[in-house]
Structures are given as C-alpha cells and as structure tokens.
C-alpha cells in the first residue's frame, strides 16, 4: 500500500505541458488521489473545457504514478476547477516565470463579466498595465502590456 503522501509527492513532479513551471498539484487540478486495492485512483478537474493540454496532463499523471501500480484517472467536472485552487507556491512560481498570477476570487460569476482586475507587471512590478487581449496564447491566459517597462506579458486569468 502506497501512502497518499507518497502519491502527492510524486504528483508534484508532474508538470503542466503549457506552463512547465507549474505542477498539477500547484495548478489545483488534482482533487483526490488514493490507492484502493492495488489500483490508484486520481480525480482530475479539467481547467478549461476545451483545453487541448488536458489529454497530455492525464497521460503524464498516469505515467507519473505508474511505478506504484495501475492508474485510473477520473475526470470530475463538479465542483468546477477554479484559479482559487492554485497554490500559493504555484502563484509565486508563475510570477517568477513571467506570467502574472490570477488576481482576486472567481466565485462570483457575474463579476467575471464586468470589471478588469488591476494586474501588476511580473517583471518591473508596476501596476500601470493595460489589457491587450482577453484571450492569449492558451485558453487560461490574457495578454497584457506594462506601460512602464513596455514589456508585453501573459496574465493567468481568474476562472
């Protein structure tokens, strides 16, 4: 029997294919991992409905835990994944990588539909930034630009 702790530890080494500094644990997509009989069950919450990385993530999770026994990944839609589940460590890693971490809480759906958050530049830390496009290089990101250092940067948007 493998301890849950060992399984979580192994998952910390499974990286997101599109944001390679974040592990699946940092991302908050692993909702449960446990061994029952010999089989390891993982509950995985997809980030975006159409995110093409989800198939790769699932495969990497299976590979990452393969040494402990057969792995079954269950996709769980509910409660839906939210950026609120991203770990503090994950947020810090994102920022160090040059992606601004999500600002605020995503719990109020109608608020997602309205005001823009104040996003600070991950490079020079200026608050003087502007939204270039709500949709960025991947489903989870928006494109911003810093008005002070002029650098364009990705913002991991609240969901």
């Amino acid at each position: 029997m493998v301890s849950e702790e060992a399984l979580w530890k192994a998952l910390e080494g499974v990286m997101d294919p599109e944001v390679p500094v974040l592990s699946v644990v940092d991302l908050g997509v692993i909702r449960r991992v446990a061994q029952e009989d010999t089989v390891i069950h993982v509950d995985l919450a997809p980030t975006y409905t159409g995110c093409p990385a989800m198939d790769v993530i699932q495969k990497r999770v299976e590979e990452g835990l393969a040494e402990f026994g057969p792995v079954v990944v269950h996709t769980v839609l509910d409660p839906p994944w939210t950026t609120d589940w991203m770990s503090e460590a994950g947020r810090a890693k994102l920022e160090a990588y040059g992606i601004a971490p999500p600002v605020g809480k995503a719990s109020d759906k109608r608020s997602l539909w309205a005001v823009q958050p104040t996003v600070h530049c991950p490079r020079c830390k200026s608050q003087n930034t502007e939204l270039i496009s709500l949709f960025g290089s991947t489903a989870c990101k928006s494109l911003y630009q810093c008005r002070d250092c002029q650098e364009p940067f990705d913002y991991f948007k609240c969901l």
């Binding site: 997809p46 975006y48 409905t49 839609l77 509910d78 409660p79 839906p80 994944w81 939210t82 995503a106 759906k109 109608r110 997602l112 539909w113 309205a114 709500l134 949709f135 489903a139 948007k157 969901l159």
Partner: peptide, 21 residues
C-alpha cells in the same frame, strides 16, 4: 447538466465580455 453548466459559465463570462467590448 448542472455540472457542465457550472463549469462552462465561467468561460462564457469571458466570451460575453469580449463580444460586448
């Protein structure tokens, strides 16, 4: 259906914001 909708509405909020803008 509830599960699917609770997931999708968050993405839809961004679509709606984008097209309205």
């Amino acid at each position: 259906l509830g599960q699917i909708a609770r997931k999708a509405i968050k993405e839809c909020a961004y679509h709606a914001q984008y097209s309205a803008e």
